[in-house]
């Protein structure tokens, strides 16, 4: 037995190389993630949209600088979000909660009342919490697998009246913290909607079932989202968002960029205004 083992040991020198390659790849991926962590807060401070210009001064596409100029007129501020593949989910959840906080503290009684009602809707009879958790259980998810995550979103919504913009920022800036739990729960809510409406989505999933698609493209952290996930999450939360697309294409400056509404039918206000640039989402503010 010992000699056969030695043969095997020698024959695995190729395997040793493979292991090294594999470990090097993992180490490199980790190093990239670490760099991103150091360079970008999870949720940054709001700045003027014109702060994006330096990134594009040498860009050959004419639409970027022109688009940033347009955005600077249309929007007061832009909040950068860490580009680690989770940016859409993080931008949406942060903006959704921050909008409620800002309205509650705006001094406008009607707006505050509306925000309170919206938070209550999300907690209570709305889809996200109780109904969503029921959906997840009926889809076969075990409570233990999402309980701590749904609890964070629930707690954020129930505590919205005592939340300040600063405490919300702090909550979302802790690595592995509460904001990250809320962000991942929104991935799970996205999955819940897609899986409970398979006929609506299956024709878009080439070679995938809703289950395999969600396991690969929705639930793992760090996987970027596409239009399909955005629609699913908005419908699950029963909210609408507006997304500006800054992709470098030239456009008619008098008309502006196309702010694309998602699930905005019958709504006046978007729960979040977002900016898309290829591969990335940030938050926009009109005021």
């Amino acid at each position: 037995m010992e000699s056969s083992e030695r043969d095997q040991e020698e024959a695995t020198s190729e395997s040793a190389k493979k292991l090294q390659e594999y470990e090097a790849t993992v180490a490199q991926q980790n190093a990239i993630q670490e760099e991103i962590k150091k360079a970008q807060p999870l949720v940054g401070k709001a700045v003027s949209p014109s702060a994006l210009s330096p990134e594009y001064t040498d860009n050959v596409k004419p639409g970027f600088l022109k688009g940033i100029e347009y955005l600077s007129k249309r929007y007061a501020r832009l909040r950068p979000v860490r580009g680690d593949g989770n940016c859409f989910y993080r931008a949406l959840t942060f903006a959704l909660l921050e909008n409620l906080v800002l309205k509650l503290r705006s001094g406008d009684a009607a707006a505050a009342q509306a925000a309170k009602a919206e938070a209550q809707r999300l907690v209570d009879k709305g889809k996200p919490m109780k109904e969503s958790c029921q959906t997840l259980l009926s889809l076969g998810y075990e409570e233990v697998s999402f309980d701590m995550f749904s609890a964070e979103l629930l707690e954020a919504l129930e505590g919205i009246e005592t939340t300040t913009p600063e405490s919300l920022e702090a909550k979302f800036n802790e690595d592995g913290g509460s904001g990250e739990y809320i962000m991942w729960f929104c991935r799970l809510l996205t999955s819940a909607f897609i899986k409970s409406h398979p006929s609506r989505f299956e024709s878009f999933l080439i070679g995938d079932t809703v289950d395999t698609f969600c396991a690969r493209e929705v639930e793992p952290l760090g996987v970027e989202c596409e239009q399909l996930q955005i629609i699913a999450l908005c419908e699950q939360l029963d909210i609408g968002v507006r997304i500006e697309y800054l992709n470098g294409e030239d456009f008619d400056a008098s008309k502006g960029l196309d702010a694309v509404p998602v699930n905005m039918d019958g709504r006046q206000e978007a729960a979040a205004e977002l900016l898309f640039r290829p591969g990335h989402y940030d938050i926009l503010y009109t005021a």
Binding site: Q8, E9, A16, K18, S145, W184, P220, L221
Partner: peptide, 22 residues
């Protein structure tokens, strides 16, 4: 699985991991 170290190459233990797993 690496024969001597026991290291495992499996997507769900790296990029495809989701917190829904235990």
């Amino acid at each position: 699985v690496h024969f001597t170290t026991g290291a495992i190459c499996l997507d769900v233990l790296s990029r495809a991991w989701t917190p829904a797993w235990g």
